[in-house]
């Protein structure tokens, strides 16, 4: 399952050593066993991987079910229903014929892929994490929690809900591990030599709607562009693993998980979801 390195390779971006990846894979393997999951893993690769990818992060024929917030937010019961019955008309087959037990095992394994469900004690202090979020770490310049903060990146009020500490930590120290298309930085140069960089909020063969960090949308015609480069990284700094100490990262992780668990609001779920038709 060595997808991480494959996806993030060749970007010329400073990355963390592979040891993080090793650690993460270790965590996945551990979770897998805990979920009684060898059978779940086998069922997943036999039945789901062809469409959703070996790691559930999406493939040619189906979206990521490991990282999409609205899928993570579904309850186990909802997942069991979707997997059992399928989604007629949109290409997601039903697997009810496998039997309830096997469907549950696949769902349990999907939870492992999502990094959901670890009830292990989360280290760190949420109060210090909050201070870092709005202070030194400058997370709030891009992210909003409970209505306060920036707007350019995803809101994180409910993000940490049910996530394991490992998954949250990875999202912070390795932001380009698995970047959804809409979150990638796009760099363009116009025919008259001007450069712009931001996120492609909408794009087709003819137009590109680029949102720059100041929030402004630039409605660009492709005919007016000299070049368009879709990078594979996000706007998020990728050096938090070295900029922040291990203890500070624990604090941030704790803050996001505590905030998410305390939050009753629906913010974050399905937010900034692109119109996927």
């Amino acid at each position: 399952m060595g997808v991480g390195s494959e996806r993030s390779g060749g970007l010329g971006v400073v990355r963390l050593g592979c040891w993080v990846v090793v650690l993460l894979l270790g965590a996945v393997a551990w979770g897998q066993e805990k979920a009684g999951g060898m059978e779940g893993a086998r069922l997943f690769s036999a039945n789901c991987a062809a469409c959703h990818g070996a790691d559930g992060h999406g493939g040619e024929r189906a979206p990521s079910i490991a990282t999409l917030r609205n899928v993570i937010a579904m309850s186990d019961a909802e997942l069991v229903t979707v997997v059992g019955k399928g989604l007629p008309g949109v290409g997601m087959p039903g697997f009810g014929y496998l039997g309830d037990e096997k469907v549950r095992q696949v769902v349990a394994y999907l939870r492992v892929l999502q990094g959901v469900g670890s009830t292990a004690q989360v280290k760190g202090d949420a109060g210090s994490g909050r201070a870092l979020f709005y202070g030194k770490a400058e997370c709030s310049k891009c992210h909003m929690v409970d209505g306060e903060g920036g707007f350019i990146a995803a809101g994180l009020s409910t993000y940490g809900k049910g996530l394991s500490a490992e998954a949250v930590r990875r999202a912070i120290v390795e932001p380009n591990y698995d970047v959804e298309r809409g979150s990638r930085v796009v760099e363009v140069e116009t025919s008259d030599g001007r450069r712009l960089s931001g996120m492609a909020r909408a794009e087709d063969n003819f137009t590109l709607d680029l949102q720059t960090e100041d929030g402004r949308y630039h409605f660009l015609a492709k005919t007016d562009l000299k070049s368009v480069r879709h990078t594979t990284h996000t706007m998020m700094p990728d050096d938090y693993g070295t900029r922040l100490s291990g203890g500070e990262l624990d604090d941030l992780v704790n803050f996001l998980i505590a905030t998410g668990s305390a939050s009753g609001s629906e913010e974050g779920v399905g937010k900034r979801k692109h119109h996927d038709q």
Binding site: G150, R195, H218, F219
Partner: peptide
């Protein structure tokens, strides 16, 4: 809590750009 046009944070800014369609 209205965020104004805050200064850019990281190296990721529009360089010498004034705005298409302005």
């Amino acid at each position: 809590m209205r965020s104004g046009r805050w200064v850019s944070l990281i190296a990721l800014v529009l360089v010498g750009w004034l705005g298409v369609g302005a």
